[in-house]
């Protein structure tokens, strides 16, 4: 069965390593924070200027001066730090953040990503996405395999305006875990009960399928 959003977040959480600083995008990526494997110490960075993000506040304890990049009210853990936007992007551009998880509208087989603009339809701006994808050494895309029209989001070439070129290394969808290498998607794992045939049929870009494709363990 295909994963739901929580399943995608849980699978991505398995990629976390002890001591990492991690930036989570809006949407499914935000959920990853809820499934950090026990025993790991991971700090979450939000590009509006906080390291050491904690859970949402209890009702009545919201602070208008304390939000995340999605403009949601948050709390901080002990040992947190606040800083300005230039310092925040120094952390990102300077590769001090070990992992970036973000959503995408399209990813191409050479690792290009499009996630900020649909010409004539959605023009909200890129926010910090272009800075994040241009500099992060480790980017995981969390997204559905197909768009609402049923078209594959894993493409030979992106059709939408790009956010970054050749930067995506790994993708986790409701169907599969894939890696991008040498100009092709490589199928690493499939969701429990999902067939290789379904993944092949829903992947438009070049897909390398090994003889044995293990099921994800969640």
């Amino acid at each position: 069965m295909a994963l739901n959003k929580i399943g995608i977040a849980k699978r991505i959480a398995q990629e976390l390593r002890d001591g990492w600083y991690v930036n989570l995008g809006i949407g499914i990526p935000t959920l990853v924070a809820n499934y950090v494997p026990e025993g790991l110490s991971v700090e979450f960075q939000s590009e509006n200027g906080v390291l050491g993000m904690g859970p949402f506040p209890f009702e009545g304890e919201e602070d208008a001066d304390l939000i995340n990049a999605g403009k949601q009210t948050i709390t901080v853990k002990s040992g947190a730090a606040f800083f300005d936007s230039a310092t925040s992007f120094a952390m990102i551009r300077g590769k001090h953040v070990q992992l970036t998880v973000l959503g995408a509208m399209e990813v191409s087989q050479n690792g290009d990503i499009a996630n900020w603009k649909i010409p004539g339809k959605m023009v909200k701006g890129m926010g910090g996405a272009m800075d994040l994808v241009a500099s992060a050494e480790n980017i995981i895309v969390a997204m559905m395999h197909s768009n609402k029209a049923g078209e594959s989001k894993l493409l030979r070439e992106c059709s939408l305006p790009l956010t970054g070129v050749g930067c995506v290394k790994k993708i986790v969808t409701e169907l599969a875990v894939l890696e991008i290498m040498g100009g092709a998607f490589h199928l690493l794992e499939r969701a429990p009960g999902v067939t290789v045939e379904e993944i092949v049929s829903k992947t438009e870009g070049a897909l390398v399928v090994p003889e044995f494709v293990p099921e994800m363990v969640l």
Partner: peptide, 25 residues
């Protein structure tokens, strides 16, 4: 891009007329 915006303001105040960044390439 947000990081470029922040750095462009910082540069403006710091007397640096321009800088190179990978963001947006």
């Amino acid at each position: 891009p947000q990081g470029s915006l922040a750095e462009r303001c910082r540069a403006g105040g710091a007397g640096i007329p321009a800088f190179f960044t990978p963001a947006g390439y």
